[in-house]
Amino acid sequence: MDGTAIRFDRVTKAFGLVRAVNEVSFDLPQGALVTLLGPSGCGKTTTLRLVAGLELPTEGRIEIEGRDVSRLAAAERRIAMVFQSYALFPHMNVLENVAYGLVVGGQRRQAAETEATAMLKTLGLEGLGARLPAELSGGQQQRVAVARALVLRPKVLLFDEPLSNLDARLRRRVREDIRDLQKRLGLSVVYVTHDQQEALAVSDLVVVMKDGRIAQKGTPTELYEDPADAFIADFMGEANVIAGEVIAAPGGPGRIAAGGAELATLLRAHPAGPASLAVRPESIRLFAADAGEGLPGRVQRAAFLGQTREYEIETAAGMLFVVVPAALPAHAEGEAVTCRFDKVIPLRA
């Protein structure tokens, strides 16, 4: 074993003539969390099911801790999954839910409940064993589902869209709980989501999928700051993709031209010439119309969101979506402004 929890080596899964997963390769290091991210139909859930043994690959090899499991059934892989719906038994209390897998596996009930009680304590659910799932909050139910999975001592823990049933505030708290637990226990985790912020917040490695293939993989920082193309730039957070020209990009301060204007900005190293340019909404600063160098524009929409303001700015380079701190001076709809870019990402051809 080389410190790799899961290895996918050119794995393909075909359903008839359709390749839901097409020659996918990636490694999950021991104790790390990898997120499979992408739009509906990209192949991420099928990939998760291949890890779990709920689907078998048409081609390629799947290893778990150095062991080839490509043809092994789910029960032989020591994998546990936390489902989107949590799938808790409503007629069983919390302790019975968590102990269920151990009892079904042949362990005596008393011993199973002792282990389940210890796991509930580990996950901050001590004292809730006698409650029914309906008597718990959404976040507590989610942690019970995790406890039920962890008590089986799996080699790898799988999460299938675990936060989709929670409201926005609770999603943030529970994703932090999952990440803290994963780090504290050193768990190897495969996590499926379509939510980019969720992926950025919890992952050691993000695998972005498109049409059954890996579009790009890397750390959250790498994917956000160095996207391979317009799809990744727009999918990993919002991005304004505009046509322009790189005048000078030595890697750092440089210059671009867009919409008839020339601007100084930070760029990664890129050959001079026409290029597609990605600009993050938070990288655009707005100034008065007579502020000098910049891309002229006009505010088409303004929205106050508490901590931030959002704008849509019509420019000669196209409509720009801009997010700025609410503490900065506000701009009214119809107001002429000047746009400057703190950082621009020239996209590779």
Rank of each mutant, 00 (worst) to 15 (best):
G3D: 11
R7W: 01
F8I: 07
K13V: 15
V21W: 07
S25A: 08
P29F: 15
L33E: 10
V34Q: 02
L37Q: 04
S40D: 07
K44P: 01
T46L: 03
T47W: 04
G66L: 05
S70P: 09
V82Q: 05
L95G: 06
E96Y: 03
R108Y: 11
A130G: 14
A134R: 15
Q140V: 00
Q140R: 09
Q141M: 03
Q142K: 06
A147I: 10
E161M: 14
D180E: 15
K183I: 13
R184E: 14
G186Q: 09
S188P: 00
S188I: 05
S188E: 04
Q196D: 06
A199Y: 01
V208E: 01
I214N: 00
T221M: 09
D234F: 04
E245L: 02
V246R: 00
G254R: 00
I256L: 07
A258P: 08
A261S: 11
A261K: 02
L263Q: 09
A264T: 13
T265A: 13
A269R: 15
A269L: 09
G273L: 08
A275L: 00
L277H: 07
V279R: 01
R285Y: 00
R309C: 10
A316K: 13
G318S: 05
V322N: 02
E333W: 12
R340D: 13
